[in-house]
Design a binder for these strands. Structure first.
Length: 329
DNA sequence: CAGCAAGAAATGTTTACTTCA
DNA sequence: CTTGAAGTAAACATTTCTTGC
């Protein structure tokens, strides 16, 4: 038994709103091909399972979209695309800024001009004093050098004096814009990062960190959803287990009430492993052969006895036709 | 003012990829 | 041409720390 749960299928919303995530849920007989890989593959595998499962899926709107295509403008495929996201194309709002490279002279984190909001960024951030959220116009030391890409970004924020970490609160506008970007793509390539940073008057490192934390929050939320779902599955299975135990007790009671069929010798009936039919032992052909083809297989042993299909056969009743084709000897 | 939650940032680890001997 | 070590970059996991309530 496997539990399947998938996340990340972007689904168009009828009213034209933003896509929703599909949380595919299902319980059924799992297939061994769902390899459990490290990290994301628990979800990916479950999604695959859910796709192959006849079980209905439950859709939850998690207000996020992780699987939207983002076509490449370079035609190339970057590593991030291999992880499921195509992050090669810069966001539309960042068009024309792709040539900017992060460096000491590029993309200053805090614009010297309050009116310089980074070009096409529609939100007016001037009232927030840039990234410092209206911190009285105090230019942070870290902002002076503009940060750098990953290889240098870690050190770049530290080597600027001992005061090191200056906690900031992103403004609502900045957060909203980052959120919108995240909905389009949960990872950024360097150019997109720089463009976004420019538009928001942030350092590229800040944008990078924000996306990292955002991904972590998404994953955490998903884990909570998974946990809740598995809890419910556990309850359902416990209930099913209780029911089956009860059914078993009823069967045992029936066993004493129907001594003829239940007292057949064990060698009389056997299950063919290939076709899953209950067949009579050739050596004891006098015993009735019971066809248990899939379409006729009762859903439970109790149904086997209660269903009006003539089983078990009463004495003198015509026997059902033999199985059409069987590998049984 | 302490406690707490949220979140920004730092740090360490893992993985994939490239380069080069 | 193949292979393994070294280097690099990016993402992730975890932790630290700041800030606001």
């Amino acid at each position: 038994m496997e539990l399947g749960l998938s996340l990340g299928e972007a689904v168009a919303v009828p009213d034209g709103g933003r896509p929703e995530l599909v949380l595919g849920l299902g319980v059924g007989v799992g297939r061994g091909e769902d390899e459990v890989r490290r990290r994301e593959d628990a979800v990916v595998g479950a999604r695959r399972w859910a796709a192959a499962s006849p079980e209905p899926s439950v859709r939850l709107s998690l207000v996020s979209s992780l699987a939207l295509h983002w076509p490449s403008d370079t035609g190339g495929v970057e590593p991030a695309a291999a992880r499921g996201f195509d992050v090669n194309r810069a966001p539309s709002v960042a068009a024309g800024m792709e040539d900017d490279e992060d460096g000491p002279g590029a993309a200053p984190a805090l614009s010297s001009s309050p009116n310089d909001s980074g070009g096409s960024f529609p939100l007016d951030l001037s009232g927030h004093g840039g990234i410092r959220g209206g911190a009285g116009g105090e230019a942070p030391a870290a902002a002076a050098h503009g940060g750098g890409e990953r290889s240098s970004s870690r050190a770049s924020d530290d080597d600027e004096g001992a005061s090191a970490r200056k906690k900031l609160r992103l403004s609502k506008e900045q957060s909203a814009f980052l959120e919108e970007s995240f909905k389009e793509h949960s990872t950024l390539n360097p150019k997109q990062k720089v463009a976004l940073a420019k538009q928001l008057n942030l350092r590229p490192r800040q944008v990078e960190v924000w996306f990292q934390n955002r991904r972590a929050r998404t994953k955490l939320k998903q884990t909570e959803v998974d946990c809740e779902y598995l809890k419910r599955c556990c309850e359902t299975l416990t209930e099913e287990n209780r029911r089956l135990h009860k059914e078993l007790a009823e069967l045992r009671a029936l066993k004493t009430a129907r001594p003829f069929y239940m007292h057949l010798p064990a060698t009389t009936l056997s299950m063919c492993p290939s076709c899953e039919r209950v067949a009579s032992n050739p050596a004891t052909t006098s015993a009735p052969a019971v066809a248990a083809s899939p379409e006729r297989r009762p859903s439970s042993f109790a149904a086997l006895f209660s269903a009006p299909r003539g089983f078990p056969l009463a004495a003198g009743q015509p026997r059902p036709p033999p199985p059409p084709e069987s590998n049984c000897l």
